[in-house]
Amino acid sequence: MRNIVVADLNQIDFQTSFQRPKIIDSVNDLTEKEGTFLINKSNMNEGLKKEGNLFIPSTLLEQTYEGVQVYFELEQYPFFQKAKEMITDPKGVLRFRRKVRNEKSNGLPASDLFVLTSILGEPEDVQLKGTKQEVKPYHLIITVNFGSGTMAHLEYTFSDEDERIEFDWSGIQNIIEFDSKEMNPIDPKGYRRLPLLYSTDSILSAAHKADQNLIKRLIKYCGLLNGGVK
């Protein structure tokens, strides 16, 4: 059975992957019956559903894709997987910040919130504050009260600058600080996009089935972030 992974190819780490995915441009390139195939997200279409196990990013999920495998970008990053292991007591303050390229804006905050609830629990209250849409860059502040002593600021700056993630967790006797800009192992930076790369191995193993439950939860978070509904 084929695995067809829809992704932003610029974010795939081919070096550390066990899978050796073949890059395709369209269904016409699917000549083998087995294997893992990567297709750029700009080429995604519904026709891919019947060609194999389809893996799509959460930001492209729509009702019509029910039943496919969906993956969340944040969940793929190795730093996040490790940090998740370390946060054993979800009591504390999270400051999560992303600088995101303009074209990635759709649905990304809701997807991140979905992932963060797996560590911090369901939000009790979500408040939004954004700058004027017509002024660039657009900056969005999401204040989340998870209750029981857990609170977070999720902040997004949408611009044409390079992507960056800062993850800053202050727990009880436990502090995690991560800044993707500081953690690039290649200097000078720019040769590789590490640490904001992820592998097809990770996508295949961490993807979720897009069932009604998942779709409803994502819709709920999108709703919360479209008006800060309690």
């Binding site: 504390g92 303050v93 400051r95 408040q127 504050k129 954004g130 700058t131 004027k132 900056h139 502040i141 204040t143 002593g149 609170m151 977070a152 600021h153 902040e155 202050s170």
Partner: peptide, 20 residues
């Protein structure tokens, strides 16, 4: 011993502050 603040200024500038 912990608090997060979200602020808005009179000219629409927004801000976060983490005090702890």
């Amino acid at each position: 011993d912990a608090g997060i603040l979200t602020l808005e200024f009179e000219n629409g500038v927004i801000a976060t502050h983490d005090a702890s």
